[in-house]
Structures are given as C-alpha cells and as structure tokens.
Design a protein around this nucleic acid. Sequence first.
DNA 1: CATTTAGTTCGGTATTTACAGAACTAAACG
DNA 2: CGTTTAGTTCTGTAAATACCGAACTAAATG
Lengths: 167, 167
Amino acid sequence: MNNQNPDTTANNSIRDIKQRVEEIGIFYEQTTLTPMEARVFALLLLADPPEMDFFAIQDFLQASKSTISNALKRLMNEGRVDYITKPGDRKRYFRVSVLRWLEQIQESFASVGPFVSTLNKVIDLRKDTNSPEFNRELLYIKDYFLFLKEELPRIQAKWNERKRSAD
Amino acid sequence: MNNQNPDTTANNSIRDIKQRVEEIGIFYEQTTLTPMEARVFALLLLADPPEMDFFAIQDFLQASKSTISNALKRLMNEGRVDYITKPGDRKRYFRVSVLRWLEQIQESFASVGPFVSTLNKVIDLRKDTNSPEFNRELLYIKDYFLFLKEELPRIQAKWNERKRSAD
DNA sequence: CATTTAGTTCGGTATTTACAGAACTAAACG
DNA sequence: CGTTTAGTTCTGTAAATACCGAACTAAATG
C-alpha cells in the first residue's frame, strides 16, 4: 500500500545509514537510553517515511522481537514514540512523536522540585549542628534551585508566547 | 584534635542516621550515582562536622577501602566533593564542596549544545526526504533548544546579578 | 632507613542489566 | 473456527557494573 520509495531512508546506501543510526544512537545512549532503545530511536529519527512497522525495525537492527518490543514499550512510556495505524492494515507504524517528546523535555525541566525537597530534608536534619558555614552554603544552593523553580516556568511562558504570536 | 562532639552527626541515634543516609542516598542514586557513591555523598551532606576522614566513612558505611576510594575519586572528579587537610595530620578530611557542586550543576544546565548539534545532524540527513511535516517538527524542537541556549545563560546572569547585589 | 599510615590499584566475584529465543496471546482473516 | 499476523511475556544467558580483599605505593614518622 505504501507506494513511496521503499528505502528505509532517502537516497543513501544502507551501510551509510546503519552507520548514521549507530552514531546518532550513541548520543541518545548517553541520555539514559539503553543501546537498543537508542538505536530504535535514532532509526525512527532518520527513517523516511518517518514511521516503520515492527518487522522493519527488527530487520534493520537485526535484533530479537522481545528486545524490539521492550525498547518500543519503554520509548512509548517515556513519550518519545507513538504509533499510527492504517485502515485495512493491522500493523502498527511506530514513529517519533516529536511534539510529545518536546512536552516530556519541558516537563522534565520543571522537575527541580525533588532537588529542593531533598535539600530541605538535609537542611532540616542539620538544624542542630554546629556547622554554620556549611549550613549556609546548603541554604545558598537551595536558594538557587528555588530560583530555577520560579524562572524556568517563566522562560517556558516566554517560549509559548513567542510561538503563539508566530502564526 | 577535634574537640567537638565526636558524633558523626548531631544528637540523633546512629541507627536513625544510617536510615537517613540511605534515604537521602536513594535520591542521589537516581541522579546517576552508584549506590555507594550516593551513600558517601549523602553521609557527607549529613555529617557534623561536615568533613570526615577516609576511615570514618568506611567504618560508617561498612564497605571496603577500594569501594570508598573509588567512590570518593568519582565524586571528586565530578566536582561534588573535595577535601581539607589539617596541620600535623596527614589524613584528608573529605567534604561536599557545595560551591563547586553548584558550579557543576550550572554548567550542566548550559549543556544544551549537544542536543542542538545532534538534531542538526538529523535534520541535515533528512534534507532530501519526502516528509515535510516530520521535518518541520524537528526544526521546531531544534528551535526550542536554540531558545534555551539563549535563555539559560540569561537566567544565570540574572542569578549572578541578584547575588551580587545581595552583599 | 625500617615502620606505620593513608590511601590506590589490581584481580576476582556477585549482582544487575541487556538481550535472545521460544512459548504464548489476541485480533483478524479465510 | 482453525490459521495467520503482530506483537507480548517468560525464561535463560552473556556482558557490564558494583563491590570486595589483598597487594601495592608514597609520604611521614620514629
């Protein structure tokens, strides 16, 4: 049914592309994805068209079904990937859900909260100690996080505003 | 020589404190420290006075010398911990270097760069593809990172300004 | 300069984690 | 309603990682 060029990605040799997937994959591996998750994600970033069915992913990466299944599951849980379906075709076509991915990133930015509360615990537990200098430094760093907690939503708002007025 | 109360931390039972170290430790474990690194870090955050010699750390955490040595090494490389020395005492007293730790955090905030360049690679590799919608989304998310790359230094400057005028 | 002290490094082990393969499931198709 | 399809789940294994213990090193001490 897909009558486009059936290449996985545009006009480059398949070997080249495998290399690119590895390369991009390594970057995302360092942002807390497992090697295979990172490769799946990189592949979907580069694929043309930008959605692939389960078997195509498995075949390209030469991995087992379970590994691909688990990688996709985690990528979907993290909001980086979703899938579309096509009428009269029961396959799922997996793709990077760029906009949800962006939302996840934005939310994670907002998560300074836990740092603040952990520091508060520490500061509270230290309240009877005889280390005023150190305790003051802890208050200082907590202050910084509180500052971020205020400012990050601000720049988020600024971004929203910029994008709103761009249409 | 240390004529303070020799308790590891202030006026709480040692069992309590072990529990606190675990608790605070678990939080830092989730921010890319190994369990033992996280415990060492948590211990130094709670210790009173806020510096401890090698053996005191080892004894408290009931771990091997090598494990403590490696944990301290990594914590020092990451800029979270340093040590002081005392005249006529060849031990090193390890402590959380709050201000360097803060600097590290601030630097890591500034590191949006790699995200942008990875996205640029992806966008470049996709330039001949037939997926305008997807490609536009990628440009959009890249735009967001570029925006952050501008704005984060700004809020950093704002913080510096606030702190400068606070003395 | 032999010994103690304060750690580091090296080699091995146990636990965890990533992945494979095969058995299973649920929906759709003939 | 048996079979194919599109995945998932379960069980085992290989590789990576965290940790231990013992051998080592470098500085200070007697």
